[in-house]
Every structure is written in C-alpha cells, then in structure tokens.
C-alpha cells in the first residue's frame, strides 16, 4: 500500500491547472504548425500564425492561453494499492482554487446554475476511475465553454448505418461553424449509455492528437481490421470530410477546420447506439501528473 497525502494532491492539482492553462500541449502546437504550413488561404495562414504566436506569448509571459480558463475537468485514476490520507475530492477542489488564483486564471464557475451570481474558482467536474497498481494519475482539462456549448448527443438505433453517424458528427461541426474557435479538435464517444458516451467524447480529447495512423487520406487502409481499424478509419474519414467543409480558422474559410478527430468506444446495449460529440477549440489544454 502506498499512501499519498491530500496536501500533496492539492499541490499537484494546482500545478496542473497552471501548466494546462499557460503551456499549450505539444501535440496541439505541432498540428497547428502543420496546419500553418499546409494552409494556402492567406487569411487563414495569418490567423494560424496569430494562434501559434499567442501560445508562445502565453508560455513566455505566463499569461493564460485563453481568457476562458474553462470549467476545470479533472480525471483521477486511482490504483488499487493506493491509500489516500484525507478527503480526495476536497483536496482536488482546493488545488483548483489555489492553482487558478496563483496562475491569475479566470473564476468562471457559477455555484447555482439557475440563480447565477458572482463566479468562483471551483468546484471542478471530477471523474474517478479505479485501476490496478500503485499509481495515482491526475489529469486537468480546463474546458472553455465557447466550444463546450457545441456538444451534442444522439441516441441512434442499433441498426443505424455508419454513414448516418458520420453525418451527425459532420453536422455537429457545421453547427459549431465559426463560433467555437476553429480549427477544432473533435472528440467522439460511441457506445455505453447517454451519459457515458458524453464522457467518452470528452475523454477522447485527452488522447494525443495526430497519432500515427491518423492522416487525412480519407480512406480506410485494408490492413486495418477489427475495432481499432474501424475507429482509425472513422477518424481519418471524418477528419477528411470535416476539412472539406471550408470553415477554416475563425470560420473565415481555409483548409484547417479540424486538427484531429479522436473517437473512443465502449460496449453498449442491444437496443441502442449512443453517439456524443464534444468539440474543442484550437486551445485544447490539458496536463497530467502521475504519483
């Protein structure tokens, strides 16, 4: 049994909040660079350059990448050989509060969604998962609401064709249009229940983007078979189709409408096929630590 103190968790969560909001993920920055190099539309190129410059300034001057420092979403993977000394949830929320204050991030959390009132720093939305081993993995994903507002869920019939699902995802991107800071990263969750599909779509944003096997060729390679093959093929086809929409950076046309599509799946019920889409702006921010 390994014991971890609540204080340590608070400290780590605070650091993750700051890092996620100030330092753009390497994979995101790298795909932004690629998009910049590939872009032919001069305005789109100029906007992508501003986005990359923004990330540099944020990192160098310790400014938030975006003023919307998000609703802090925290994923906690707890090993079965871990003992936590103290209140884990309280420790995480304390960490959010301290990190957001220390990093001069924005207080965007409304305690009562109906009464509204002055924004606070916490609580975050926390997901707990139990895994094997003696590690504790903490991930902070500050999710901006310009793009969170564009999330969609549809409960398909189990006999739905893949093309119907693709159409739904494409329509979700189209309806986000210029509003949610394209180029987007599109998270898709397929399977589980209504709520779990939404969680998977969000979780998909945490997977490294632009992984090998994902290129906008628009075809499913024959060597890819089985579940992973279907998922990879779907990711490729969707990315290809989305980037034909010509929404482009800031919605002012261009090739780069999405940087990546990440699909996550989970077993589901014989009577259903839930599909959720979680769109993320180009400032896809997250940071992880393993204790």
């Amino acid at each position: 049994m390994k014991t971890i103190s609540a204080n340590k968790i608070t400290k780590i969560v605070a650091e993750l909040c700051i890092r996620a909001n100030l330092v753009l993920r390497k994979d995101v920055l790298s795909l932004l660079h690629n998009a910049y190099l590939k872009e032919k539309n001069s305005r789109a190129k100029k906007i992508l350059q501003a986005i990359i410059e923004n990330a540099k300034i944020a990192r160098k001057e310790k400014l938030a990448i975006c003023q919307d420092t998000g609703l802090p979403c925290v994923l906690v993977e707890i090993g079965n050989a871990i003992k936590i000394n103290g209140d884990l949830r309280a420790a995480i929320n304390k960490g959010i509060e301290s990190g957001y204050k220390k990093g001069y991030l924005r207080n965007s959390v409304i305690i009562n969604p109906l009464l509204r009132g002055k924004p606070k720093y916490s609580p975050g939305v926390i997901h707990f998962d139990f895994v094997k081993g003696n590690k504790l993995k903490l991930t902070v994903l500050p999710k901006g609401f310009g793009c969170e507002n564009k999330a969609q869920l549809r409960m398909f019939r189990p006999t739905a064709e893949i093309n119907e699902i693709k159409k739904f995802i494409l329509e979700a991107v189209k309806s986000a249009g210029p509003d949610a800071c394209p180029p987007y990263v599109v998270g898709v969750g397929i399977g589980g229940t209504a709520d779990y599909a939404c969680f998977l779509a969000k979780k998909a944003l945490l997977r490294e983007i632009g992984r090998k096997g994902q290129s906008p060729s628009g075809t499913v390679p024959s060597e890819l078979k089985g579940d992973l093959g279907i998922v990879l093929g779907l990711e490729r086809e969707l990315l290809y189709e989305i980037n034909k929409l010509n929404i482009g950076p800031m919605g002012l046309s261009g090739k780069a409408t999405a940087l990546a599509v990440n699909v996550e799946t989970f077993p589901t019920h014989i009577a259903g096929l839930p599909v959720a889409v979680n769109i993320c702006c180009h400032a896809l921010r997250s940071a992880t630590a393993t204790l």
Partner: peptide, 16 residues
Amino acid sequence: CGPAKTPKGKIIGSCG
C-alpha cells in the same frame, strides 16, 4: 470579453 485576472506587473490578463 471577460478577461482573465491581471497578473502582477501586467496591464491586463488574457482577454480575447
């Protein structure tokens, strides 16, 4: 716009 907090020594925080 709803700016982020103003860090010490800055005029304003992030403000898109």
